[in-house]
Design a protein around this nucleic acid. Structure first.
Lengths: 329, 329
DNA sequence: AAAGATGCTGAAATCGATTTCAATATCAGG
DNA sequence: CCTGATATTGAAATCGATTTCAGCATCTTT
């Protein structure tokens, strides 16, 4: 309620001097500094941040665009980001695209309208050509998802490698009829993962059965459905590589319900290494993604870019993926 | 980059008229409206939101304070909130208190410094007397957690009842030596839940064994630890009521590892009814909390209070809890 | 034809800070 | 005693919008 003017009036000084006190500028008489401090205290004065934003052209706010906060993967990612942001004095605006292109574009407007200083894209529903125009309004970096056409800093994992090691592991276990439930096109991340799958298959001289490919799904229910679709086949696959631990968990749960033994009748590999992968029985063999590291690194980069006003540039950074073997294979 | 003045200059009109076009005011000549629109388009003009905030004294932003975003419970809560907020044209600032009092207080400052129009408290680390002073800066409501001393709108579940039905269920199954892992003091929510536990015990003429009480824990690892502490007792409890599904899951996993049969040797009740409660084997008997409803309702209230500038008031709203019986009991 | 209502427009004030610029005071060095 | 550096201060401009108020047409109504 109290403004800088009122503080000035109360102390008999000018707003300029009060501002100097607020911002710890040198050249303020120590006595007057103290005087201003107590006046601020008494009036319960706090600087209005809208005014500061307008004058300073900075918001100290960063937007994070994700696709589904209910996915624990993003929960961990956001958690790591929030931690760094808070340390550095930035707030986080949480933007959930809910996998919709339009919402994502709307969220990008935040940068244009100067509501945030930068944007971290952890969801990528749109093409680079649609995103590119926004880069002139402030830093945008991608984290987790990516688009090789894009000219922006990225913190990503080598998904092709992930797809490869997961598949290779199943092949090493003797499987030949391997299903894949992870999406095959649309998003580059899933496409690369699928490439890894195909590479491993080709290397082993195995052919990819079109009937064994399931479009991209995300939740437990999707996993259950996929199991049933496989179960209904006359020539069933003996293993499945799922695009996420939740899908894998759904497959496993339903398999158990129908007395299909895991891993003997059906081996399952997940992705992400979420806590639940270790919890259910059998534990899910999965690909560990360093979520914490990704989030931390992305936010560090972002803050650095904002602080140095783009004269720092980053390239693509590739983080390691790792196979975690449990009982489901 | 372009300002309203530049649009005005380009069209030969005044900033006032341009502003009218932007805000869809009546009394603008349709021709000039169109003229302004195309000029804005050509200049790539977008209103600067810091300026609007300053002048309008609104931010269209709401802060949500939670304790741990990695907890899927909060993930769902935030998801529901974000959905309503987006529909109504508000942004969400995610504040993670990480269970620390100080962080929570810092986040409350957002309201004072006019960075947000209102705050939803889904975490409550501080006492009402510390929070109360902030209410004069804007609406604050609590969601999930609560403090009966507090005079603010609340959306909460009847935790005493939750504690009661969970315990009653175990008693009905014939258990007498029942452990409780949910916190017994500190936060009112957990205290009430514990009261429900005690009421059910007393009603059945059972005494509460101090050794069977475990202080408040949150994660899977905590559940594992608790199992071991129980396992080491000479007079082991035959059932445990855990403060969350994750804790319950940890207990169950470790029990299985040590060949302690669930529910025969140890019955387990969780809390929250998270997806994982249905996923692990055996499924966890738990108390369903309507997270989606809580989040939705809280955000609806918040927006309503902001829009009507506090001349609407809400009271405490109690949402239903429900026992979900699965195989762990 | 006068009075009043309605439509359209812009100059200037305002929101609450920060920054630029100039003014003044004080002090050291030559 | 003069010059130049170093402290200390405030008036006024600025950030980019919205709002108030007043002015002037044009159109009804009596």
């Amino acid at each position: 309620m109290a403004t800088i003017k009122e503080v000035a009036a109360k102390t008999g000084l000018s707003p300029t001097t009060v501002s100097r006190v607020i911002n710890n500028h040198p050249y303020v008489d120590p006595k007057k500094r103290k005087l201003v401090m107590t006046a601020m205290e008494e009036l319960g004065y706090v600087p209005n941040s809208s005014a500061r934003r307008l004058r300073g052209q900075r918001t100290n706010t960063i937007a994070v665009i994700i696709s589904r906060i209910v996915n624990p993967f993003f929960g961990h990612l956001v958690d790591a980001m929030e931690k760094i942001a808070a340390e550095r004095g930035y707030q986080l605006i949480l933007c959930d695209s809910r996998l919709e292109k339009d919402r994502e574009m709307q969220h990008l407007e935040l940068l244009k309208t100067k509501q945030v200083d930068g944007i971290i894209l952890a969801s990528l529903q749109n093409r680079w050509k649609d995103i590119e125009p926004y880069t002139r309004y402030g830093p945008i970096i991608s984290c987790n998802e990516y688009d090789s056409a894009a000219d922006m800093p990225m913190i990503v994992c080598d998904q092709e490698y992930g797809g490869y090691i997961g598949t290779k592991h199943l092949i090493d276990r003797g499987h030949e009829k391997i299903a894949y439930a992870g999406g095959t096109d649309r998003i580059e991340l899933t496409r690369d993962r699928f490439s890894g799958f195909k590479r491993a298959m080709a290397e082993a001289g195995l052919t990819v059965n079109e009937d064994y490919l399931f479009p991209s799904f995300y939740g437990i229910e999707d996993g259950k459905n996929i199991f049933h679709r496989m179960y209904a086949m006359e020539n069933r696959p003996t293993a499945i590589f799922a695009g996420g631990d939740e899908v894998a968990a759904g497959v496993i749960q339903e398999a158990k319900r129908f007395h299909c033994r895991v891993p003997d009748d059906l081996a399952v590999v997940g992705f992400d290494n979420q806590p639940l992968a270790d919890l259910i029985d059998p534990g899910i063999t999965t690909i560990d993604q360093p979520m914490k590291l990704m989030g931390t690194r992305a936010m560090e980069m972002m803050v650095d870019m904002i602080r140095h006003n783009r004269d720092v540039t980053y390239k693509k950074e590739l983080l390691p993926l790792q196979l975690i073997v449990r009982e489901s294979t």
